[in-house]
Write a protein that binds this DNA or RNA. Structure first.
Lengths: 129, 129
DNA sequence: CTTTACACTCCACTTACTGGAGAGTTTATA
DNA sequence: TATAAACTCTCCAGTAAGTGGAGTGTAAAG
């Protein structure tokens, strides 16, 4: 598929997908005559994965590492599993933090209902968190 | 408190806190004679809030907006509530996505246990997600 | 009283994009 | 079949949000 479709299906911009191809994070085939990139379904899957991981601040390098786990036949499955479990526990920490952030904001929304809003409630809330 | 303590308590680096002060995201007092920044508890609370929000890719500008809700007495509480609720629904979407990412990785970890790892399971998993 | 830890400014560098110019390609429409 | 609209390409400059390091001043501990 062309870059436009790959971008749409992975929720990335065309610019970003092109950038990922430039740095070698994905390696689409290239039509020699037109110069157009040609993305396979696997390329798309990788883009979708990267898009998701990037939204949670996993760096490009970390994404690369995770992706390479599957292509590098020399790695032992122990290694694969270890890195994966490490990332999962990072995700668990993020989940807790994100729930916490949600809690703080919803506390704020509920305490700012009245028209005569008093002193800022969030700073107190935040201070003793 | 000094910048070092503020950084430690907000899980930011000294460099980053200094940067936030430079761009006016927080406004610590400044000791005229030494030039040292002096962070109040409120400054710290703001840093903690920003640290958390930034970890989930809320931009500096969004952080600024959220923080300003509390200091700007001219805003109506309706406005405060609307923006806050908007951010909460963004967080809900992120929560779903993050859980999904966790699921994908744990699926992978479980399917890479054996020593003779077969073809990559994640790409299949990702493709039909 | 001096070493160690911490603070400051300033400036260059990095990561991960983003925007725009200029030009070729493909598709839909007149 | 012509031509306009939509899509693609490269290249280059700019942005957001830091990060690293040099050179220097301040404070606390031994």
């Amino acid at each position: 598929m062309n870059i436009g479709k790959a971008a749409k299906l992975s929720n990335l911009t065309v610019k970003t997908v092109r950038y990922y191809a430039d740095i070698g994070l994905v390696k689409p085939l290239k039509n020699c005559s037109t110069g157009y990139r040609d993305f396979s379904d696997d390329d798309l899957a990788q883009l979708q994965f990267v898009a998701k991981a990037r939204r949670f601040n996993f760096s490009i390098q970390e994404c690369e590492e995770l992706l390479s786990l599957y292509s590098d036949k020399n790695r032992s499955s122990k290694e694969v599993k270890a890195l994966t479990l490490e990332k999962i526990s990072e995700i668990d920490a993020k989940l807790i933090e994100l729930k916490d952030l949600r809690h703080q904001l919803s506390f704020l929304a509920n305490n700012c209902q009245g028209n005569d809003r008093p002193e800022c409630p969030i700073l107190d809330e935040l201070s003793n968190a």
